[in-house]
Amino acid sequence: MKSRGTAMNPHNRFQPLATDRERDDGWYQDPDDDLCPDSMATEVVDEQVRTIISRNQSPDVPFDRSINPYRGCEHACIYCFARPTHAYWDMSPGLDFETRLIAKPNAAEQLRRELDHPGYRPATIALGVNTDAYQPVERQRRITRQLLEVLLEYRHPVSLITKGALILRDLDLLEELASHGLCSVRVSLTTLDNSLKRTMEPRTAAPATRLKILRELTAAGVPNGIIMAPVIPFVNDHELEHILEAAANAGASRASWVMLRLPLELDELFQDWLQRHFPQRAGHVMNRMRDLRDGKTYQSEFGKRMTGSGPYADLIRQRFNRQVRAVGLNRGEEPALRTDLFRRPAGEQMGLF
């Protein structure tokens, strides 16, 4: 499937009925049969949301609230931990996740309502965590930019995670937010190998472009760093030191890492991808994954799901910490984004009368 992470569409686990189509023996070929097209267009439908800020209590992440302008992600990363969430919308975590997107056009309007609520207390909002806020559909829909405009107006802190070059379109907003101590950015950098990038995360920005993003953010005074997420045994783990060095040279100041996670349907999708692209090492990769997860392919427990456990996890941690020190990343504590500047423009204007 051209420019897609997978051609599979595994069954939706919430749907009690499943259908299979039996193929013929190959003698008859219907020229109009689109069972196996070589490409597929992206479909986008709108959802008028009633809430936009999602809350979490996970000790594994440094934020308790987030906003996702889109459901599904056209970036098509085969390893994306968010794929199984597409089943909640009666769609498959496979090809549907990449091609059948849901946009939230009233996101900015709803954000205003929630920030205006008298009981709201500001804390950093992570923008684009479950799915990328700067995936290709954002170029036309501009929902992420509208959200940033609201956050700037309210002087509300925001952090962003992306692997999309479109973030540079909004550099004007990010620069102004950063000038008030209200913004930080993390670029997901998983490989420096263009060939691996094309198969593993087909519609994302090239590695060189992501380094350019870091350079331009640094030049604009926007605090930034990278996340090597995920680290995949015997696929990209050998690049760890080179990725950290390249990021430091591009101006990044922070770095972190996450081990590959394979929840629910993602296990089947990733293993199919391995067999297609790395058949000789597929068994080796999955054996290491089981070593990391106490004999299973995934653990959902807090404290283990992001890093795994055992000798290999310890080795990755040691390599990461040593290289971070060597290239000068993660020096000192990262300054917290400001919350004391938060204001409600509508409320302030009413106070003048």
Rank of each mutant, 00 (worst) to 15 (best):
E47G: 09
R21H: 07
D25R: 05
D314M: 12
P311V: 03
L315A: 14
R293S: 07
P136D: 10
S309M: 09
R169Y: 14
N330I: 08
M306V: 11
Y28G: 10
N56I: 05
S92M: 03
M259T: 04
L182K: 03
R288V: 11
G5L: 02
R13Q: 11
Y88M: 12
A107L: 01
T85C: 09
L168D: 06
P69T: 10
F278I: 07
D132T: 01
A205S: 15
A252R: 02
D24Q: 06
R100V: 00
I213R: 00
C80H: 08
P311L: 01
D60F: 07
R112S: 04
Q271S: 12
Q15T: 15
T162R: 01
M8D: 11
Q318G: 06
L17C: 06
E22W: 11
L111G: 02
T19C: 09
P223I: 04
R290A: 09
D314Q: 15
P233C: 09
G310V: 03
A336V: 03
R281W: 02
E333C: 04
Y134E: 07
R100L: 00
R319F: 10
R13G: 06
Q57R: 12
R254M: 01
L35D: 15
M289A: 08
T51E: 10
G251D: 01
D30W: 01
A123M: 01
I316Y: 03
R344L: 01
G303M: 05
S58T: 14
N249W: 02
T297P: 11
D34N: 13
V185M: 09
P31C: 07
V222E: 06
P263Y: 01
M228P: 00
K296G: 02
I213D: 04
H117Y: 13
I102L: 13
L260H: 07
R13W: 06
N9G: 05
R331W: 10
P37N: 09
H117E: 15
L260F: 08
P62G: 04
S309C: 10
D132V: 05
L174V: 11
D272M: 03
A208E: 07
M8W: 11
P16V: 08
D170P: 03
H277K: 10
T209P: 00
N130W: 04
